[in-house]
Simulated scan of single mutants.
Amino acid sequence: MSADLPVFAPRLDPLPYEVKLEARPLQQIDLVVIHCTELPDLTMARHYGERILHASGTGNSGHYYIDRDGSVHVYVRPERVAHHVRGYNPRSVGIELVNTGRYPDWLTVGSQKMEEPYTTAQIDALTMLLDHLRQELPSLRYIAGHEDLDTAHEPASDDPTVTVPRKMDPGPLFPWNAVLRATPLERLVPQSSGSL
């Protein structure tokens, strides 16, 4: 291996409740869901991930987090079902890219733009992670954005007469074309695919 090639070295940092999450066979996973944290930094994303929100003593979190510097952090190993996307958790792995998104006013009428670009280091790390997951997960076939799978709208927090998207990540600045060129995974968009 050339010394110039980046080394894929994810940092294992499991959430305190990881063992309480439902176990699953790796063969069950056929989908990767791309998210952005919609938070200012990895520290705050970790804080949100550690919050207990369910009777099982677990919270909402992705499996992998990719910081702006390209470092990859494993909060939940793939053999556990993480709570990261409505309706698709049992079959999917969630990858969170650190990005401010609409923070801190996610659901206000005036905050419905995502203006922070993803870093080259993040996209390079994502590409390596997708390659790693394809080797580790025998049934992996699809990739989707959170916004592809959760298309619900909610009343805006500052004007309940207006509805706004519940989820917009990874958003318009995510380089889908480049990512799809780098992986054989097929983009899953349920509204138009009809193949779930």
Rank of each mutant, 00 (worst) to 15 (best):
M1L: 09
D4Q: 09
D4G: 06
P6V: 04
F8D: 03
A9I: 03
L15H: 03
L15M: 10
P16V: 04
P16M: 04
V19R: 10
L21R: 04
Q27E: 15
Q28C: 10
V32F: 01
V32H: 03
I34D: 07
C36P: 00
E38L: 11
L39K: 00
G49P: 00
R51F: 11
R51V: 12
H54Y: 14
H54T: 13
A55F: 02
A55S: 14
G59K: 12
G59V: 09
S61W: 01
S61C: 15
H63W: 07
Y64W: 14
Y64P: 11
I66F: 06
D67G: 09
D69W: 09
S71D: 05
H73K: 07
V74K: 03
V74H: 08
V74W: 12
Y75E: 13
V76N: 03
P78Y: 09
E79G: 11
V81A: 07
A82P: 08
H83Q: 13
H83A: 11
H84P: 09
Y88V: 13
S92W: 05
E96K: 05
E96L: 14
T100Y: 07
G101L: 00
R102E: 09
R102L: 10
Y103W: 15
P104G: 06
D105W: 08
D105A: 08
L107A: 12
Q112S: 07
Y118W: 00
A121E: 14
Q122F: 00
I123L: 13
A125P: 03
M128T: 06
M128C: 00
D131S: 12
H132V: 05
R134F: 00
L137F: 03
L140R: 07
L140N: 06
Y142T: 03
Y142S: 05
G145M: 02
H146M: 12
T151K: 05
H153A: 01
P155G: 11
A156H: 04
D159N: 15
D159C: 06
P160S: 12
T161W: 12
T163G: 03
M168V: 15
D169S: 15
P175I: 01
N177P: 11
N177F: 13
A178K: 12
A182V: 08
T183C: 02
L185Y: 04
E186H: 12
E186P: 01
Q191W: 08
S195W: 06
